Amino acid sequence: MSIYNLQEIVTPRIILRPVQVGDEIALNAAVNRSLESLQKWMPWAKNSSLAATQNFVHASAIGWKNKTGNSFPMAVIYKETQQIIGTSGFNEDSIIAAGIYTIGYWLDIAFQGQGLVTEFVNGLTRYALDGLKAKAVHIQIDTANHKSIAVANRLGFISTLPTDQEQASNTILFKRVNTCLLPPMHVTWHK
């Protein structure tokens, strides 16, 4: 299965689907509601303008459509309201040819603390390992980002010993190679 054929991943409360033209305003509103938190961890959040969000959405949509993207951003949609509440997906640190998918994510501050990130990261991990037959799923997290470290720990990701480069950048690499012992959850994906 090719990631480019993905239409959506569905978890109990979340729908993940490729970012598409038309998502700009909802995404930009979520970014700006969460700006203080995002700017701690996400370098791209330094520019929270609508134009920056439009550029991201358009480049991402073209990458998905033309099957040329090196990252695979997905809108995080809260099923109950159909509201876009963040983005996730597999970022540019993924090495698709080697079967390694690196998950990145952020969530609107108004929706944090409800287990939603743990839920959709579980779904992405299952999709990569079972649907795409990945060899590994990674999450790279700043050592001071305790909320994201807690997500990786809840999902049984194993922290790897940092390399010199990781020590210099203050990140921890978390890894999973199978779905054994992931918290049980019903996940479907459509291609």
Rank of each mutant, 00 (worst) to 15 (best):
G63V: 10
L173R: 15
T143N: 14
A134G: 12
A144W: 01
A30S: 14
N70V: 10
W189F: 15
V137R: 07
S48K: 01
V177L: 07
L38R: 04
R33D: 14
V76L: 08
R126C: 07
V121D: 02
A150W: 01
N170S: 14
G69H: 11
A59Q: 11
K191I: 14
A152E: 01
S159G: 01
I15N: 04
Q112Y: 00
I172Q: 13
I141T: 15
L129P: 10
R17D: 04
T171G: 00
L6Q: 14
N153R: 15
A150R: 15
W41D: 08
I14Q: 07
N66R: 15
D142P: 01
Y78E: 12
F56M: 08
S148G: 01
V10H: 11
G123C: 03
T118C: 03
V137M: 09
L38W: 13
T81R: 15
T143E: 14
N47T: 03
N178F: 01
V21S: 09
R33L: 06
Y105H: 08
N153K: 15
L50M: 11
T118E: 08
G63R: 14
T118W: 00
I100Y: 02
V31E: 06
W44H: 04
K46A: 09
I15P: 11
T188S: 11
R13E: 06
M185P: 00
P18G: 10
I77W: 02
I77Q: 03
A134L: 14
I96Y: 10
K67P: 02
F120E: 01
K79V: 03
S148A: 13
